[in-house]
Design a protein around this nucleic acid. Structure first.
Lengths: 231, 231
DNA sequence: ATATAGTGTGTCAAATTTACACCATTAAAT
DNA sequence: ATTTAATGGTGTAAATTTGACACACTATAT
């Protein structure tokens, strides 16, 4: 029994690479598709742009509908427009990334029926994804790698209060290389945008580390002279 | 007498920011539009993507049709998708930049009727452009600024043989700041991707400068370990 | 021969980056 | 109470990179 799918002549879609950091691992949000094509496949959250919404607005809406996440700062990073990237016709997709604190987030869960469910998956062990989504992911991952040192990427992934070791292990996860502890701390603290708190880490069975907070105001002041990379 | 224009529901277009360097000035290629909307306005070369071509292919085709330029390496940099950016309906545009040696290039000239003509215009004194093209230009200009130091941008803009002073003045034009002559030379030569020729500059009424060539092979070797920014 | 205009070069101080190892603290186990 | 296990927190010295800075050289035109 075959169902006839509609044909697209000229459709825009959005796909989202949502990064989170949990248990020392960098993860992205995947959905299990509930629609043809690629029904039951894993995919990036993505859908079609409506006529009356900007692509930036569409990115926020679509992410919400497929995962229940709202108010993320979505950053466009590339557009994929190969002729045959979508089996149903001509669909050009604009890809966005966003960063989120996984903890303190209620569980991710689709609001519409287009996805069966949504979940976090480590970036290091991704299965093959629907469409050209594996390529989209790679491109997005490269983007945040490149921007890690002049955009406040790390601080949107960490909890509000974090230790320097957590910060370092996030850097190591994104850059995929080990860093020197003493040099890393010296460098980070020298910027002056980390505020040392009077609090310490809790619930560990060894010496508790100091907690720090990110001062976005100071960060912005330091990097504002740098060329804007928003677009 | 009013002509009824068609309405677009969902159309992709391409716009191109083509950089050139001439007479010590950074320039971009503009066209004078020959079609509504914005007939007679100055604009970036751009047009609508066909059903059966990828956006990368479309970028090359459209640039050729509007300017007669072929075989440039076009680099996508951002997609603009505000709802009302095009007065005739919903048109999302993918922006590309490219770099070219203006000299040694036959004159730029539209191949189709969509543009009245095409010409080089200094980036420092741009008029208001059609649609959101001024914003597109700014975004593209920021991109190449940012990439100047790890992509071979300068060498695609200069003639094959160039002096270090020409190279420096290009850097100064892109970065919009003065650089120190001795430090600039020291740094550039230290990379090892500039090959000193036995030839000298001709036609100047003062001491002629040495000419250099860019060694792309060596450049690539040096920057290949850097994260790929192609996308 | 001289005026002009741009070419080509070196040093030193300051700042940044890199390499590297051990004692301190806490909680859990004994 | 002591020990163990695990991670926290810290400084110095060498190497490299960056930045500031000035003048003699050379080719042409007059």
């Amino acid at each position: 029994m075959e169902v006839k799918l509609p044909t697209f002549n000229s459709v825009f879609s959005i796909d989202c690479v949502i990064f989170g950091f949990e248990a020392g691992e960098l993860k992205i949000l995947l959905i299990e598709r509930n629609e043809e094509p690629f029904k039951d496949w894993l995919a990036l959250p993505g859908y079609i742009v409506e006529q009356d919404e900007s692509i930036d607005d569409a990115a926020e809406r679509i992410l919400y509908e497929l995962t229940g996440l709202r108010d993320l700062h979505m950053q466009q990073f590339h557009t994929f427009g190969e002729v045959n990237r979508h089996p149903q016709g001509r669909v050009i997709t604009v890809a966005y990334y966003a960063l989120i604190r996984i903890n303190g987030q209620k569980e991710v869960k689709p609001v519409t029926q287009y996805a069966k469910n949504a979940f976090w998956h480590p970036v290091n062990d991704l299965p093959k994804l629907a469409f050209d989504h594996s390529e989209i992911f790679e491109t997005g991952f490269n983007k945040i790698r490149r921007r890690l040192n002049y955009q406040p990427i790390a601080f949107e992934l960490l909890p509000e209060k974090f230790t320097l070791t957590q910060l370092q292990s996030l850097y190591e996860a994104v850059l995929n290389k080990k860093l020197d502890k003493r040099n890393f701390r010296k460098k980070m603290l020298s910027y002056g945008f980390l505020k040392e708190l009077d609090e310490k880490q809790k619930g560990v069975s060894y010496r508790a580390a100091k907690l720090y907070k990110f001062d976005r105001r100071k960060y912005t002041k330091i990097f504002q002279n740098d060329l804007n990379l928003d677009k």
